[in-house]
C-alpha cells in the first residue's frame, strides 16, 4: 500500500502532506505546487486516480426520493398526533363544547396571516384561572418596527380568541426569534 502510515491519529504521507488534503485537492482539480512536484504525492495521486475520477464524474441523474415516501411517512405521523389536549368552551348547552389546543393554534396562525410582516412559528396556549395565556414565537420582516408589529399581532390574536371562542385572554407573550428578508 502506498499510503502510509495507517495510524488513527495521523494519515500523513512520508513528505508530511496529509492524504485527505491531497484527496480533497485532487477532487477539486487544484493541487498545490508541492503536490505537483513531490514524488510521494504524485505516487499517492496515481493510486487515488481511479477513485477520484469516479467521484468527480457527475451522476447520470439526480437522485430523487421514491414516489409515495412522504405520503407513507405522513400516514404514520398523523396516526401519532401528539397534542390532543382540549379546552372547554362556554355556551348555554346542554352539552359541552371542547376544542383541541392544536386547533386553537391553527386558528391563531391563520389570523396572524392578516398581520403584515410577521410570521408565527410556535403557538402554545395554557389555561389559567384568568383565562387563556398564549405564547408565540415570531419572525419579523427586516425593517419592520418590531414593537408595533407585535402590538398588531397581539390585538389580532386576542380579538380572534375572544370573539370566536369567547375565551378571556389575559396575556399574549411574543418572542421574536429572528428576522426574515422581505418577499
Amino acid at each position: 500500500m502506498a499510503l502510509e502510515p495507517p495510524d488513527d491519529n495521523d494519515d500523513l504521507l512520508p513528505c508530511g502532506n496529509g492524504e485527505d488534503a491531497l484527496a480533497r485537492h485532487l477532487m477539486a482539480g487544484r493541487t498545490t505546487d508541492h503536490e505537483a512536484g513531490c514524488a510521494h504525492c504524485r505516487s499517492a495521486a496515481r493510486d487515488l486516480e481511479p477513485l477520484i475520477s469516479v467521484l468527480r464524474e457527475p451522476p447520470d441523474e439526480e437522485t430523487t426520493a421514491p414516489v409515495g415516501l412522504v405520503d407513507d411517512v405522513m400516514r404514520i405521523v398523523r396516526s401519532e398526533r401528539r397534542n390532543t389536549r382540549t379546552l372547554t368552551l362556554g355556551g348555554a348547552g346542554p352539552g359541552t363544547t371542547e376544542i383541541r389546543e392544536s386547533a386553537v393554534a391553527t386558528l391563531v396562525r391563520l389570523s396572524a396571516r392578516d398581520v403584515p410582516d410577521v410570521l408565527v412559528g410556535r403557538c402554545r396556549v395554557r389555561r389559567t384561572p384568568d383565562g387563556l395565556v398564549v405564547s408565540l414565537t415570531v419572525l419579523v420582516v427586516v425593517g419592520t418596527p418590531i414593537v408595533e408589529a407585535a402590538e398588531r399581532l397581539r390585538r389580532t390574536v386576542r380579538a380572534l380568541l375572544e370573539e370566536r371562542l369567547r375565551l378571556a385572554v389575559p396575556r399574549i407573550d411574543i418572542d421574536v426569534t429572528g428576522l426574515v428578508e422581505p418577499g
Binding site: E62, T63, T64, M74, R81, R109, R122, T177
Partner: peptide, 25 residues
C-alpha cells in the same frame, strides 16, 4: 424553514409535511 420547524415542533403535521417534501431527496 425555522417557522415550519417551530410549527412542526408544535405538532403541526402539515408544516412537517412541507419540510419532508423539501428534504426527502
Amino acid at each position: 424553514e425555522p417557522v415550519l420547524v417551530e410549527r412542526a415542533q408544535d405538532g403541526d403535521d402539515s408544516a412537517f409535511e412541507i419540510l419532508l417534501r423539501r428534504h426527502q431527496d
